[in-house]
């Protein structure tokens, strides 16, 4: 228990640190949302000054941070200049969409990587293993952007999948089942791009972890007890090799999240990615901070989840953390 509490403490501390840092960096970055207005001779400098005062941009940084914190407590996370609304509800919808992509592709990528890597490790050096290694090496060197664009071209040419957005025109009129189908269809392209971009790394780690453990004496002993091959691989070898993979799982969530931001922009998925990009270009300060904070939150949440898994999967960690 203490181990988990400590982890949770770390996570909260990390979030606080990231919020301070993003605040600092966005404040230090040149230009604000109102700079463009200043170029406009139609708007009086007094108006701009009043607007700045209204949003509190004229106050010193610590004060702004404090008032942002209090708005966070109120569930607003500051105010978007461009959307003229509180940031939190704005982000929440977008974050949900991003999460949908990220979680689906995380699960899918692992669901493929685990059995494939285990299968391949058992055939280490034979033809199927060599082909897989070669194929994943190829995938690894293709940039995510090229991958996404390639998929888009494919989709446009074949016309099999929708090539952008999250829903078709007239989405509201569809029955619940068809709504689900529609979203699923729209997800195929971005999810494929994301899975393809992470799969090689995951596959290689799984394969290496399993291959490392296949010579372990306890597996030889299990073989000596006549444990069937399938049980041996998936019930014995995989859990024993799990620790580094679970840590990688937390890491992969972060990886897919940042990958997702890019893919969303390319495939116009209404997630955090496009919103964040617009906000950065427009210097929509609090949206940027909120977006970054949300991403960090997912990242930290993913790692916390991995720690939880680790605690659950390895009895030795449980005893160790209790003994400390």
């Amino acid at each position: 228990m203490r181990y988990l509490l400590r982890r949770l403490g770390h996570a909260l501390l990390l979030l606080a640190g990231v919020s301070v840092l993003t605040f600092l960096f966005t404040a230090l970055a040149p230009g604000t949302y109102f700079d463009e207005m200043r170029m406009n001779p139609q708007i009086a400098p007094e108006t701009i000054a009043a607007l700045r005062a209204q949003y509190g941009l004229d106050k010193p940084l610590p004060l702004r941070y404090a008032s942002w914190l209090s708005s966070l407590v109120h569930g607003e996370m500051g105010f978007s200049f461009a959307y003229n609304s509180p940031v939190a509800p704005l982000l929440l919808v977008r974050a949900g969409n991003t999460l949908l992509l990220t979680i689906t592709s995380t699960l899918l990528a692992w669901a493929i990587a685990l059995p494939l890597g285990t299968w391949s490790a058992e055939r280490m050096g034979r033809l199927p293993d060599r082909l897989l290694s070669w194929g994943t090496a190829m995938l690894l060197v293709i940039p995510d952007l090229a991958l996404a664009l390639g998929l888009l071209v494919l989709a446009v040419r074949s016309g099999w999948f929708p090539t952008g957005g999250m829903a078709s025109v007239g989405f509201e009129t569809l029955s619940p089942f068809n709504k689900l189908r529609d979203v699923a269809l729209h997800m195929i392209l971005p999810v494929t791009a994301l899975v393809l971009s992470t799969l090689p790394l995951l596959f290689r780690h799984v394969r290496a972890a399993i291959a490392d453990i296949l010579d372990a004496p306890f597996l030889l002993a299990a073989l000596g007890h006549g444990i069937p091959k399938r049980t041996l691989l998936y019930r014995y070898a995989l859990p024993a090799a799990a620790n580094p993979l679970i840590s990688l799982f937390g890491f992969s969530i972060g990886m897919l999240l940042s990958g997702s931001l890019l893919i969303e922009v390319v495939m116009s998925w209404p997630g955090l990615g496009p919103l964040l990009l617009e906000a950065i270009l427009a210097r929509d300060l609090y949206v940027v901070i909120g977006g970054i904070l949300f991403s960090t939150f997912f990242l930290v949440g993913g790692n916390l989840f991995a720690d939880l898994l680790l605690y659950w999967a390895d009895p030795r960690i449980r005893t160790e953390s209790n003994a400390q």
Partner: peptide, 14 residues
């Protein structure tokens, strides 16, 4: 049946 040398290594750790 086989009984192996090192009991700490011949059992699955988790």
């Amino acid at each position: 049946s086989l009984i192996f040398q090192e009991p700490s290594l011949a059992l699955h750790p988790t």
